[in-house]
């Protein structure tokens, strides 16, 4: 009897790990596109916030979460455009620009929600049928464990599909090769006839769209409203996962699952286990620092990361 309870706990832990990893996977994949093209993206947090707010606000106004999702993607592309214009065209410092974007989208949602919904930073609560529906992969009346694992929001599945797709795109397609080329050696790419700026723009816009999708999952998937600073550092955890995963899609996915598991455990262990919650939440950050100091030298970041390319 006790054993089955333990099993149940473990299996539902898989479900919550999948749920909690999803926004991280999407944002980290977004980061991957930008950084493999040579543009540092510490703006993931701001992009997620923009997506989370746009999704919740649009859904609240239209009643349709799919339009909300579309709005989130558009907002992400727009934020990506700001980042790309500042860093690629005007060669602004990539880290400073990212920091500015993070600050900007801490403020913008609050400002707009005040004007749109007369609230202090939150959007109205959505009804049950206004948030994204769960997929019905298994019979909802059957085993609740299986239901909790498989009947997730479509975005959860999408995140995993996108990881595979990104792996394929980067390794096997011309577009992927170009992204890697401008991220490793923009001079050579330029000599070979590639327009470095255009490829970096595309990569950063994709980055924004993906991170915003991750944000949308938080506001209209996992929850049913946007609240002030609801990403709570997930953009930075995604960045950590990207580094921990050594800028590769599979590595990044595994890192996100690990960090998702850590979050799931920290929620589950609240008040039951004697390890302070704060320490469990620190895991992603500490691991990233350890990785950066330790075995990162075996796999270094894209060589042109952080360097604006000036066409001769």
């Amino acid at each position: 009897m006790i054993d089955t309870t333990a099993d149940l706990l473990n299996l539902t832990l898989i479900a919550s790990t999948l749920r909690l990893s999803t926004p991280l996977i999407l944002a980290a994949l977004g980061g991957l596109y930008a950084e493999r093209s040579g543009v540092i993206n510490i703006a993931l947090e701001g992009m997620m916030l923009a997506g989370a707010f746009s999704a919740a606000a649009t859904t609240a106004l239209t009643g349709n979460p799919w339009i909300g999702l579309l709005a989130a993607i558009l907002s992400g592309i727009l934020v990506g455009l700001i980042h790309a214009a500042a860093t690629v065209t005007w060669r602004a410092d990539q880290v400073v620009t990212g920091t500015a974007i993070n600050l900007l989208f801490l403020g913008v949602p609050a400002l707009l929600s005040g004007a749109l919904f007369d609230s202090t930073g939150a959007t109205p609560q959505l009804t049950r049928d206004q948030v994204l529906p769960d997929l019905k992969i298994v019979d909802p009346g059957g085993s609740q464990t299986l239901v909790s694992i498989f009947n997730q929001k479509p975005i959860v599945y999408l995140a995993f599909i996108l990881v595979a797709l990104t792996g394929y795109v980067l390794a096997r397609t011309r577009f992927g090769l170009r992204i890697r080329a401008v991220g490793e050696n923009p001079e050579a790419a330029d000599t070979a006839g590639l327009v470095v700026a255009r490829i970096r723009y595309t990569a950063v816009l994709i980055s924004g769209a993906l991170a915003a999708l991750g944000g949308a999952y938080l506001s209209i998937g996992q929850n049913s409203l946007f609240t002030r600073n609801m990403t709570a550092g997930r953009g930075f955890i995604a960045l950590a996962a990207l580094i921990f995963g050594k800028w590769s899609p599979t590595g990044t996915l595994l890192a996100c699952l690990l960090f998702g598991l850590a979050e799931a455990l920290s929620i589950r262990m609240q008040g039951t286990v004697n390890i302070p919650n704060q320490f469990i939440q620190m895991i992603p950050y500490v691991l990233t620092m350890v990785v950066l100091a330790g075995f990162i030298r075996r796999s270094s970041p894209p060589r042109a990361l952080g360097i604006a390319y000036i066409k001769e």
């Binding site: 700001i82 500042a86 005007w90 060669r91 602004a92 410092d93 400073v96 620009t97 920091t99 500015a100 974007i101 600050l103 900007l104 801490l106 403020g107 913008v108 609050a110 400002l111 005040g114 004007a115 007369d118 202090t120 930073g121």
Partner: peptide, 24 residues
């Protein structure tokens, strides 16, 4: 009625953005 103190944060962020792209 409608403008919150978040305007200040937005202004500060835009200032950083513009200082960063001073080349403009």
């Amino acid at each position: 009625d409608r403008v919150s103190k978040d305007l200040v944060q937005v202004l500060q962020a835009i200032i950083i953005l513009f200082v960063a792209i001073e080349i403009l």
